[in-house]
Simulated scan of single mutants.
Amino acid sequence: MTSTQDLPRRPLGSTGLQITSLTIGAGPLGSMPANFGYEVPAERGIATAVAALTGPVNALDTSNSYSRGESERRVGEALRQIGGLPEGYVLSTKLDRDLDTGEFTGDRMRRSIEESLERLGLDRVPLLHLHDPEHIGFAESMVPGGPVEVLVQLRDEGIAGAIGVAGGPIDMLREFVATDVFDAVLTHNRWTLVDRSAGPLIEEAAARGLGVINAAVFGGGILAAGARASSRYAYREAEPELLAAVAEIERLCGEHGVPLGAAAVQFSTRDPRIATTVVGVSRPERIAGSVELATVPIPDALWSEVDAVVAGLAR
């Protein structure tokens, strides 16, 4: 098996954490059929979490809301089976709104981390994100006693080693980054082979010393399976122009003998501004497969050809 030393470790901003260039995304292993189109049995999810915690990657990302806590429950069972969190392992989870009532207050953030710690069987986490604050917006997130203030308190109390913000809209995340409150920022579906919209966010976050985490580099699966296998990008139907771009990039990868998934992963991992790239998995063997995608040799010529395709998409 590939060892962790075979994957480069990078500083996660100024947190003091050293993180492998890949992070295992634990959303799929908790079973999220609405997002990924398939169920994952509990036994397989737990086995996948065990493999993630004991394999070649030293980071795993989950959330209070993934499968209404099932992802964390399965990760927690895996942690119990292996005897606790390995030394130096970067486990992250996220503070979430109440999925039933929509409550997204400071009090709810307290309950969110209490629920997460109970499921995980831990008393602290190395990294804790504010998750999807677009549900209330920047201003409401920053009110006294609100979600961000509570997140900072959790870091001060030692419950979180470092804190980040994870969300979708780029302009909103840039507002959070500009506060200099956070240690890390997580963006998803917006820095991929065919979507470069997170560029300004990544540049600003890296310049301010935040750890940049890039997730969903497969765009929900199409940038691994190809345009013939899927017509969806970022969990919704894709525009014809984007599908055509994916098909062209897939063709270029074939000419160079490079798997499309390898190009999707390495587009992110090759970027020196990005500390780690989150790749979701739902089977134990997919972890070694993800490492292989991250280490396949890719000629420089392919990147310039891909950039030309995306430049045409942007016009």
Rank of each mutant, 00 (worst) to 15 (best):
M1G: 15
Q5M: 13
G13A: 14
S14W: 03
G16T: 09
T23E: 06
T23A: 15
I24S: 05
I24G: 05
G25I: 09
G27R: 03
G27N: 14
P33S: 14
A34K: 14
F36M: 12
G37R: 09
E39K: 09
P41N: 05
I46M: 08
A51R: 15
L53A: 00
T54C: 09
T54D: 08
V57W: 03
N58R: 12
L60W: 04
D61S: 12
S63C: 09
Y66D: 08
S67T: 07
R68A: 13
S71C: 13
S71M: 12
R74G: 07
V75N: 13
E77G: 01
R80H: 10
R80P: 00
L91F: 11
T93V: 13
L95K: 14
L99G: 12
L99H: 13
D100V: 04
G102L: 05
F104A: 13
R108P: 01
M109R: 11
E115G: 11
E118M: 12
R119E: 07
L120D: 00
L120Q: 00
L120C: 03
L122I: 11
V125P: 08
V125M: 13
P126W: 03
P126I: 02
P126H: 00
L130E: 02
E134N: 06
H135I: 04
H135D: 14
A139V: 13
S141V: 02
S141K: 01
S141R: 03
V148M: 11
V150Y: 04
L151Q: 07
D156L: 14
D156T: 12
A160Q: 07
A166M: 08
P169R: 04
P169Y: 12
I170A: 02
I170F: 06
L173T: 08
E175C: 11
F176R: 02
A178V: 08
T179L: 04
D180Y: 07
V181D: 09
F182M: 00
D183Q: 08
A184D: 06
T187G: 13
R190S: 09
V194G: 02
V194I: 15
D195E: 13
D195H: 10
L201R: 05
L201S: 09
I202D: 04
I202F: 03
E203Y: 00
E204Y: 04
A206I: 09
A206W: 11
A207K: 15
R208W: 07
R208C: 10
R208A: 14
L210T: 05
N214F: 05
A216V: 03
G220L: 11
G220R: 10
L223T: 04
A229M: 14
S230M: 15
S231Q: 14
S231M: 09
R232Q: 15
Y235V: 12
E237I: 06
E237K: 07
E239N: 00
L242K: 13
R251E: 07
R251D: 00
G254V: 06
G254T: 10
E255V: 05
V258L: 06
G261L: 11
G261D: 12
F267E: 01
T276L: 00
V278N: 05
V279L: 12
G280F: 01
V281Q: 05
R283K: 11
R286S: 10
G289W: 02
L293Y: 02
D300N: 02
L302N: 05
L302C: 01
L302R: 04
V306L: 14
A311K: 11
A311G: 03
G312Y: 00
R315T: 12
R315M: 03
